[in-house]
């Protein structure tokens, strides 16, 4: 394990981040395809499906570990977690 980072990322959190990046990859590929095939219903359905999956996963990640993207921030109004959680260079990995 990399001993460098202070709060080392538990494997569950790392696994979730990996899942999210894989879905991001699929979305980007579909995005590029749709740019040249804007009327392909199948591709749009695929995009909708994976986009919904991504939002679900990012929301779950946010509840467990804090915000990953500004657009999905769990507003608990007591604390602006975006700033208080560890920064990426502190091993926060968001």
């Amino acid at each position: 394990m990399n001993t460098g980072c202070k709060p080392c990322m538990d494997s569950e959190r790392q696994k979730m981040l990996q899942e999210i990046s894989k879905i991001d990859f699929v979305l980007k590929e579909l995005n590029l395809y749709l740019d040249t095939h804007p009327y392909d219903q199948q591709a749009m359905e695929n995009f909708r499906q994976y986009n919904a999956m991504k939002n679900k996963l990012v929301t779950e990640y946010t509840e467990k570990y804090g915000p990953l993207v500004l657009s999905i921030v769990d507003m608990d109004n007591r604390e602006w977690k975006w700033a208080t959680q560890d920064w990426p260079w502190e091993g926060g990995y968001n």
Binding site: F25, V26, L30, Y33, T36, H37, A43
Partner: peptide, 22 residues
């Protein structure tokens, strides 16, 4: 020439390593 169809790989983990889903 542009891509012709939207068939995707079944195994997306494999596709991720390969570098394309098509």
């Amino acid at each position: 020439p542009w891509q012709r169809n939207c068939n995707m790989y079944e195994n997306l983990d494999e596709a991720f390593k390969t570098g394309t889903i098509f």
